[in-house]
Amino acid sequence: MIKKLYLHNLNLVKELFELQRASYLVEAKLINFFEIPPLKESMEELMQSGETFFGYFDGDELAGAISYTIAGSELTICRMVVHPNHFRKGIAQSLLTEVEKNNQNLSELKVSTGKENSPAKNLYLKNGYKLVRDLEVVPGLFISNFVKRRVEER
């Protein structure tokens, strides 16, 4: 089940914080970079991110989460995390579908991931996102930027 997460519940924030750490540690190993900002943030910083969060629950367990911001007609996915115990169950796909369905009025969706994070890149590509560029953000670390533009019907 997918539902909106409200970050004033400290137990939920702690669960999200731990989920995020477990997920981003896997990405850190894939891209050989352990300074990913969400790995360094505190629970307070997570709570104050200003992002909208949705969580995927397997029973009572938070198995995955997605967050985003909206500016004008652009939605930027900030985080996509799935607990390693729940990889390859379609959770990231379900979360992405939910966000897209709930924001059909927006004309552009953006997301970035580590260039070496093939599972994430494949998810975005198969959902119609196009690779815009690979950007070297620090020496030796490349981030792949994707965009999905929606054509307005007339």
Rank of each mutant, 00 (worst) to 15 (best):
M1L: 06
K3G: 04
Y6V: 13
L7I: 08
L7F: 00
N9Q: 14
V13I: 10
E15I: 03
A22K: 07
L25H: 11
E35H: 15
E35Q: 15
K40I: 03
S42T: 15
L46K: 08
G50C: 07
T52A: 04
F54H: 07
Y56P: 00
D60M: 07
L62F: 06
A65I: 12
S67H: 10
Y68F: 15
Y68T: 05
Y68K: 08
T69S: 15
T69C: 12
T69V: 11
I70R: 13
G72S: 05
S73I: 03
S73Y: 07
S73P: 06
E74C: 10
L75K: 04
R79S: 14
R79L: 12
M80V: 14
V81W: 09
V81C: 15
H83G: 04
P84G: 05
N85D: 10
N85R: 07
F87K: 06
G90K: 10
A92G: 09
S94F: 05
L96D: 03
T97N: 11
T97P: 03
T97I: 07
V99T: 05
Q104T: 00
L106W: 07
S107W: 09
L109F: 15
S112Q: 14
S112A: 14
S112I: 08
K115I: 00
K115W: 01
A120I: 13
L125Y: 11
L125V: 07
K126Q: 15
G128F: 03
K130W: 02
L131S: 06
L131E: 00
L135F: 12
E136Y: 07
L141G: 06
S144R: 01
F146K: 04
K148Y: 03
V151K: 02
V151P: 00
V151W: 03
R154I: 09
